[in-house]
Design a protein around this nucleic acid. Structure first.
Length: 251
DNA sequence: AAGGTTAGCAACCGCGAATTA
DNA sequence: TTAATTCGCGGTTGCTAACCT
């Protein structure tokens, strides 16, 4: 099936947004709310394509965005989530209120990658760099043998993204790792259509009521992605259930 | 001071997923 | 059921300010 272009490229502006364009977009969304990005530019009097408007709003104009530097705690959360999820920037951003996926992606590429490399850790696999790799990267060998922080199967090892990686039959590479990444109170329950459509059985409801949720399910990870859960039902056996955080508890 | 290089960030592009008709 | 449409994501590019020589 073909794809129509997202917009009439001949009649759209490109490049940096002007203040006037920003104001128009903000005013329109304040008046009408988000959504229907395709028709928004015309309705708002903008010579931009809908994708561009959405991106500008999501990454720059949203009032709830937190501008400014990342803290060391933010860094560690990002590293942990990246170890678990890989390059799922939108999922990672979902755990950092006020941060956008684009911002985190940029921050990862410009800061955290380097930070991990200086620790002697491969930013993609979260495993120690070999001495040779460290040398070719132009980095000094670590003073002490690097510790594996958050190991995820390397793509070359499992043939790509996750098919069962992290399941019970894979012994943990770092047994001391306590990755409690449960989603805290600020986040709402799963809202993906698939999740919403899967009406839980009474047994499932009871299981969810009692104590446990699957982080990956909660984050909206579909089966076959980062989550090792193979079952179509989030409450079915095989999920890694994590205890929800206490009130006020934070990752 | 001028030119070159690097780092950081905003924005674009292409694709797949989800939704709609 | 299927094709068309829209949305959202991740990778990449390009601009610019800061830094270096």
């Amino acid at each position: 099936m073909g794809r129509s272009p997202c917009c009439e490229k001949a009649h759209t502006n490109k490049g940096a947004w002007t203040k006037e364009e920003d104001q128009r977009l903000i005013a329109y969304i304040k008046a009408h709310g988000e959504g229907c990005w395709r028709s928004l530019p015309k309705a708002a009097g903008l010579l931009r394509c809908g994708k561009s408007c959405r991106l500008r709003w999501m990454n720059y104009l949203r009032p709830d965005l937190k501008r400014g530097n990342f803290t060391d705690d933010d860094d560690e959360v990002i590293i942990k989530l990246h170890a678990l999820l890989g390059n799922k920037w939108s999922l990672i951003a979902g755990q950092l209120p006020g941060r956008t996926d684009n911002e985190i992606k940029n921050y990862w590429n410009t800061h955290i990658k380097r930070k991990l490399l200086t620790r002697g850790i491969d930013p993609q696999t979260h495993r120690p760099l070999s001495a040779a790799a460290a040398l070719t990267a132009g980095l000094p060998s670590p003073a002490r043998p690097p510790t594996v922080l958050f190991a995820r199967p390397a793509p070359s090892e499992d043939g790509g993204h996750s098919s069962g990686g992290g399941s019970a039959d894979h012994a943990p590479r770092c047994p001391d790792l306590n990755l409690d990444l449960s989603v805290g109170p600020p986040c709402s329950p799963p809202k993906t259509p698939a999740a919403a459509a899967s009406t839980p059985t009474s047994q499932q409801q009871q299981q969810q009521r009692t104590t446990t949720i699957c982080l990956c399910y909660h984050l909206g990870v579909r089966s076959g992605e980062a989550c090792s859960c193979k079952s179509p039902s989030p409450a079915a056996a095989g999920f890694r259930f994590l205890r929800p955080l206490e009130e006020g508890q934070y990752i």
